[in-house]
Amino acid sequence: MIEIRGLRKSFGDLEVLRGIDARVAAGEVVCVIGPSGSGKSTLLRCINLLEAPSAGKIQVGGVDVTDPDVDIDAVRRRIGMVFQQFNLFPHLTVTENLTIAQRRVLGRGKQEARRVAAENLERVGLSPKADAYPSQLSGGQQQRVAIARSLAMGPELMLFDEPTSALDPELVGDVLGVMRLLAQDGMTMMVVTHEMSFAREVADRVLFMDEGVILEEGPPERVVAAPSHERTRTFLARLLDPAAAEVTREDDVNRRGGG
């Protein structure tokens, strides 16, 4: 479904992606983990060209999206994208959020668009909120609406960019629950996340990124449970126990001060 070869991306002098090769098969769920600044989000944003790659090739469903002559709007129609900040349209109701692209992009009629919207709202468990405005919803509800908005376009592939990072801890579970159902339905998913329990339980494969390269990849029981790389181990240890990371940093300072 996705095939990435030699992908590089620079912002000015800063090279964020330094040669990425990756594949995602149809129906596969791939979680991308790694420290902040490692290029996870940039990788995801390159796949639907929210960022233009500096070099390399990306194919999505057999279409080369890095070809300058490609109809990028047509490509994006087939790729759902879920953002950390939800990015619902605040001037539209929940139903309108789900219907506007169906109508304006896919040319569906009002009745059909509303029917598809209702189906997908039901899928994320938010049918009662159909006429609410985004500002009236909790963060978790907004993110589920955002997922439904993408699903309403009938995507072949869904990209999730830290979908639960902006949520209060008690709201994370609902969003992950919806994503778990999607995975069970066979949706092809690429998920940038810090939720290790989700990665371990739902992912078919986990990619560990650090400093712009994929350092390690494999089934979650290997990458998350028994990482072979030192840096993967350090990252996971800090994620599981942030307090421990604090001690390590202080150690560094002390060592530098002493030396």
């Binding site: 929210l50 990015n87 349209f89």
Partner: peptide, 10 residues
């Protein structure tokens, strides 16, 4: 907002 709209194919 622009990114979300473009991601939906607009």
């Amino acid at each position: 907002q622009m990114e979300a709209a473009r991601s939906l194919g607009m």
